[in-house]
Write a protein that binds this DNA or RNA. Structure first.
Lengths: 246, 246
DNA sequence: CGCAACATTGAGGGCCCTCAAGAGGTGTGG
DNA sequence: CCACACCTCTTGAGGGCCCTCAATGTTGCG
């Protein structure tokens, strides 16, 4: 960072902007499977408008007109909603690189959530109009966005189905399985390091912190997990999976 | 239909297939706002594989590999899930023209729902691979699909938010408002003709038929609606909107 | 009519929320 | 060092919402 100072002072702002742009790894995470070609990444870099935000700032507000797609390049952010008491209720926690809103701008619509920086983050915005024009010359880019949106549809469909058909214990079991890391030589075991406040995890599961606390106690009593602070040891993945099935 | 018989017998099958394809109005409903150009519709027609199904047949099953997008051209169908007792639980009711699954095939994934024909319907399938190739020559087509998927994301987001934050009365009030037809010279009033069994409407709202019945009674008692059979008279849209807000 | 499917109504109960109090941890200031 | 404020998490008590189960009413059809 501080190493490269060759450019004249007038372009240090440009250099800072470039530094805020996603690198190859970030582009790879924003788009899936058939990776973005170098040329496509370059094209996107030209359209990208970087923004830096510090912890606690709002990236956008629910209801604001959305003329640009918004991607989180690096850092942690939350999608959710400010309630009446100006308390932020997290609905989804995102760790960059990830899309904060890849859909509203295509319809000339409005953002569906409040988005809030949980730490110092960098975000890039892509004007939907400009992106649409670019897609005309670079059809592969269009397929990338189709895939991004299709992935979002899949995730949201699963989320809605979970809310409709699964009770709180099943959702919590599913969350644990999804965040479970393998333990060497112990296929039934697993490790989950909680990176969020428990109340935020509860928020994601659409339950109250009290209920989550009781669930942890209940699962522990059943011998399925062991909790100490922000570390959860999964003792029996099979039974956890059975709980997750409802 | 029976009128045009000019073509030789060998091509009557082709004629039938063409008849099953979406017309301009149907294409307009499948894609939004900036309407599909004639050339694009023609291109899609070439890729479309029509299927006819009769009432009760399954269009696709949850978990089946999805290699093609599926659109409902005409008729009624339901997205939902067959439960353990082989009972179909409707999650969403669709009236053609509409997309049954516009996302799974893009990811080489699997259908997220069971889809069931509620009447005699015609469906068209588009191979995602072929569609992707077509998009390379016709970028405008790509933008259309981006818009379709963005619309789906918006609808699903709203649905998930409703399930999380709104109770049963609010969801039912919202459903009524969404399906409410205007009554001449009476801006506060409205008319809703229930086109589905009440249990299917309840299913969409993620409540039981009993609860829906009690809600109708409760709203009637409050003087907000009047119910007789499958006809609902909305008496006070303002208060209904207040109920829908939670 | 008899039957089947749907809708309604009531009784009872489970799940999860709300409210309230207490425990444990951390940073600040005296 | 302790006192204090503040935050999070935990634990308990109570209650509301909505589900389940069961009985009854209604409608349509053979």
């Amino acid at each position: 960072m501080a190493a490269c100072r060759e450019s004249p002072a007038s372009s240090t702002a440009d250099a800072a902007a470039r530094a805020a742009l996603p690198d190859a790894r970030a582009w790879g995470a924003l788009f899936a499977e058939p990776a973005l070609q170098a040329g496509q990444a370059q094209l996107l870099n030209q359209l990208a408008r970087p923004r830096r935000l510090s912890a606690g700032e709002m990236v956008f507000r629910q209801g604001e007109p959305a003329s640009a797609l918004v991607a989180l390049v690096q850092g942690d952010a939350a999608l959710g909603r400010l309630d009446a008491q100006a308390q932020f209720r997290t609905e989804r926690h995102l760790r960059g690189p990830a899309w904060l809103d890849a859909s509203a701008a295509w319809l000339g619509g409005r953002h569906a959530h409040d988005a809030r920086a949980l730490a110092a983050i960098t975000v890039v915005e892509f004007d939907a109009e400009a992106l649409g024009k670019a897609m005309e010359h670079t059809p592969a880019l269009a397929r990338q966005f189709v895939r991004v949106l299709a992935g979002e549809v899949r995730a949201l469909t699963r989320h809605a189905q979970a809310l409709m058909h699964l009770d709180a214990p099943a959702r919590w079991a599913g969350w644990l399985l999804a965040h479970c890391q393998d333990v060497p030589d112990a296929p039934q075991r697993g490790l989950v390091q909680l990176a969020l406040r428990k109340r935020d995890i509860a928020s994601q599961l659409a339950i109250t912190p009290e209920t989550l606390s009781r669930l942890m106690r209940s699962f522990s009593a059943q011998g399925v997990i062991e909790v100490s602070g922000y570390t959860v040891h999964v003792l029996d993945r099979t039974r956890l999976a059975a709980l997750a099935a409802g």
